[in-house]
Nucleic acid binder design. Structure first.
Length: 284
DNA sequence: GCCACTGTTAGCAT
DNA sequence: CATGCTAACAGTGG
C-alpha cells in the first residue's frame, strides 16, 4: 500500500530513530528479499547510519562508507522497532541490530513482493531501479509536467502511475488527484488542455501535501514505523467510496477497472472523454 | 471450501 | 520504443 505519502511518513519516523546509530548486525530471514548486494549487506556491521531519505516509493538508508540500503515496500512492506527479545512474527524478513542495543529495526512483508538492494556508491547511478525514475511529483514544475503528459498517448491515469514519468504516485493518489482536477482517468494524456494540466499540477501538489500532513492513508494494513495508522483515508473523496455520493454533486462514485487497476471517479464531475470520430478512410 | 479481491511493477506480448 | 496485461505472493472477506 505504501505510496509516496506513506513512504515519506515512514522516512520521517525512521530518520530520528536510526541516524547516528551503529549497525551491530543484520539478520536476513528471507533470502530473496535482497535482490542485489547480499555480500555488501554483511559488510554493514560496524557502520554508522548517516541518513534516511525517499526517492519515489523507495526508502533509502545511507550508511558510512558509501553504502546504501534501498527498500521497496511494494504492497505490504513495513518497518517496526522491537526489543531484541520480543517474539518475531512469521512475516519478519530482515532485522537490523544496533550497537547501543536499545531496540532493533525489523522489516516485515506479508506478500513477499518487497525488495532490498545494498548498493555501493552513488545510488542514483548504481541501480536501474533508481536511475530509471521520473521526477519527484512535489518538485516537478508545471512546464516539465506539461511536457511529460503531452508526450504520452496513453490514458492519463496510466501516465500518473508510470514511475518512469513521475516517481511515487500510486493508485489511491492518482484517483484522488484526478477527481480534484475533474479529469476522467481514461482521458488520453496528450489530449489535456493547458488549463487541465495546470489544474492537475495544482491538485497533485495539494493532494500529496495534504496526505503527507495526515501521515498517509491506512485502508488495510499500512502502519508507519511506530505502528500508527494514517488519517488521510478520512479525506478520500473517491477512492474506496464506490456507490457513495460524490461530495461535489451527489452522483454515486463509480468504480471501473482501468489498465488492470481499480479506478474510482465521479461520472458527472469527471466526464468521459469524447470518443474520436472514425477517420474517413476513403476520403475522396 | 472456493472465489474474488488487494495499495506494485517486472516481464512479456503486441 | 510505447503501451497493455498478468503473474509473483499471502491474506481477507463474501
Amino acid at each position: 500500500m505504501p505510496e509516496l505519502p506513506e513512504v515519506e511518513t515512514i522516512v520521517r519516523k525512521l530518520a530520528p530513530a536510526v541516524i547516528g546509530r551503529t549497525i551491530a548486525g543484520i539478520e536476513l530471514l528471507y533470502r530473496p528479499l535482497v535482490r542485489t548486494g547480499r555480500k555488501a549487506l554483511a559488510g554493514l556491521r560496524g557502520r554508522r547510519v548517516l541518513g534516511v531519505r525517499r526517492r519515489g516509493k523507495l526508502l533509502l538508508i545511507e550508511c558510512q562508507g558509501g553504502r546504501t540500503l534501498v527498500f521497496h515496500l511494494k504492497m505490504t512492506g513495513q518497518f517496526l522497532f522491537a526489543g531484541e527479545t520480543d517474539p518475531r512474527d512469521k512475516h519478519t524478513r530482515l532485522v537490523v541490530r544496533f550497537e547501543d542495543g536499545t531496540n532493533e529495526l525489523r522489516f516485515r512483508d506479508v506478500r513477499k513482493f518487497g525488495f532490498l538492494l545494498c548498493l555501493e556508491g552513488e545510488p542514483e547511478t548504481a541501480s536501474r531501479e533508481l536511475a530509471g525514475l521520473g521526477p519527484e511529483p512535489l518538485l516537478v514544475g508545471q512546464d516539465e509536467f506539461a511536457r511529460i503528459l503531452k508526450a504520452r498517448k496513453g490514458r492519463i491515469k496510466s501516465v500518473l502511475l508510470d514511475q518512469r514519468r513521475l516517481a511515487g504516485i500510486g493508485n489511491i493518489y492518482a484517483d484522488e488527484m484526478l477527481f480534484d482536477a475533474r479529469i476522467h482517468p481514461e482521458r488520453p494524456a496528450s489530449s489535456l488542455t493547458n488549463t487541465s494540466i495546470a489544474r492537475l499540477h495544482d491538485s497533485m501538489n495539494k493532494i500529496l501535501t495534504a496526505a503527507i500532513a495526515s501521515s498517509g492513508s491506512t485502508l488495510r494494513n499500512y502502519r508507519d514505523a511506530e505502528g500508527n495508522e494514517g488519517r488521510f483515508q478520512d479525506s478520500h473523496k473517491v477512492y474506496d467510496r464506490t456507490g457513495e455520493p460524490c461530495v461535489r454533486c451527489g452522483t454515486p462514485v463509480r468504480m471501473k477497472r482501468i489498465g488492470g487497476r481499480s479506478s474510482h471517479y465521479c461520472p458527472r464531475c469527471q466526464p468521459a472523454p469524447r470518443r474520436r470520430k472514425a477517420p474517413c478512410i476513403p476520403c475522396p
